[in-house]
Design a protein around this nucleic acid. Structure first.
Lengths: 116, 116
DNA sequence: GTGTATACTATAGAGTCTTAGGTATCAGCG
DNA sequence: CGCTGATACCTAAGACTCTATAGTATACAC
């Protein structure tokens, strides 16, 4: 019941989507739902952020989409990672780790360790 | 010689500044320099981001400023953390840790662990 | 047939960054 | 003395990504 939801940190959504799609093709709504579940309800992906992000990633050639009709008869645009997207995911993840490392270092540095 | 500089992640600058000022009062330029050094040259704080951020933090009452003349004769606006700022720093840092934890969890989850 | 979940689209607005310009002081150097 | 580089600050345009909100439409349960 952790319903205190985190705001998305600007710029992080793209990697999260790529990561989700690395499990296999999915449509937008499913990506959003998976991210919410995977984060224990802490991350809420607004649709106004999700769909533009998907289009953005497609423009970059990292994902590609196709309209499909589910067995239920519903239509949905299914996204899949491209080869370029797979590569991008790897480098994005490592960039994130690097940023978090630097960020954490600054937050943990004690005075005198580096300050003049 | 790690000159590959990281872009600032939008929203992270405020905490970084608060943290820097928790070592004691400093002027803007010094804050920027300290962050660069503390991050081993990986973080470059653009002035166009720095000064607006300082004003923003002051408007929120987290820091306060005063014009001072250094022994060199140069003038500089020196910023100091307020009591509210000290509290804000603590809660911001823990919010960041929380975000990083969630973010990392998503990036490390393997398929089947949570996906339907 | 009403509501809930699914599935996508679009727009207005806010907030934070990058880029790029500007001012001014001070120290060192030729 | 003028030049350069480091210090110190300010501002504006523009891009980008998010939130908030509203609208469309189908499927299914009650």
């Amino acid at each position: 019941m952790t319903d205190q939801q985190l705001r998305l940190l600007k710029g992080t959504l793209d990697v999260l989507i790529l990561k989700t799609l690395s499990w296999g093709p999915a449509h937008g709504y499913a990506v959003s739902r998976w991210l919410r579940e995977c984060s224990d309800n802490e991350l809420r992906i607004e649709e106004g952020a999700l769909y533009p992000a998907l289009r953005r990633l497609e423009e970059r050639g990292w994902i590609e989409s196709e309209w499909r009709t589910a067995e239920s008869g519903r239509e949905a645009r299914v996204y899949a990672l491209t080869r370029a997207g797979t590569k991008a995911l790897l480098s994005e993840v490592s960039a994130w780790r690097r940023y978090m490392r630097v960020f954490t270092r600054v937050l943990e540095t004690r005075p005198g360790e580096s300050l003049a």
